[in-house]
């Protein structure tokens, strides 16, 4: 049995990744710069990745880590497209403040 599995309860990873996830949520909520908001989303994804990797190791099952790869794929695609959109928005509005993007209202 691995050293880490013996010494660290799985709960610790759960708490850590919950904490990171909530920090990500918090960041999304308080930041107005769209790029930073996207970064916070990346943080949330990473929190989930960490948990998946932990379970993968604890269960000695490679599927969890494979799933992490796929999440990375999605995150990379999301970052590419999201940043492309942001550049487009900035070109039109000269700002990345998400408060300026409230035309979809009323």
């Amino acid at each position: 049995m691995l050293e880490v599995v013996k010494n660290i309860p799985i709960d610790y990873y759960v708490y850590l990744s919950s904490l990171l996830f909530c920090i990500g949520v918090f960041g999304v909520l308080i930041r107005r710069n769209a790029i930073v908001v996207l970064m916070c989303v990346e943080l949330m994804l990473n929190a989930v990745n960490l948990l998946l990797a932990a379970f993968s190791t604890y269960l000695s099952d490679a599927q969890g880590q494979i799933l992490v790869f796929f999440i990375m794929v999605v995150a990379a695609a999301e970052a590419a497209v999201g940043l492309g959109i942001l550049v487009m928005i900035f070109r039109n509005t000269k700002t990345t403040d998400i408060y300026s993007l409230d035309n979809l209202k009323f």
Binding site: I10, S60, A62, Q65
Partner: peptide, 15 residues
Amino acid sequence: GIQIAVPENTNPQVG
């Protein structure tokens, strides 16, 4: 709430 059955013989080659 997390109950996982950790196998006795974990495979260190997984990662």
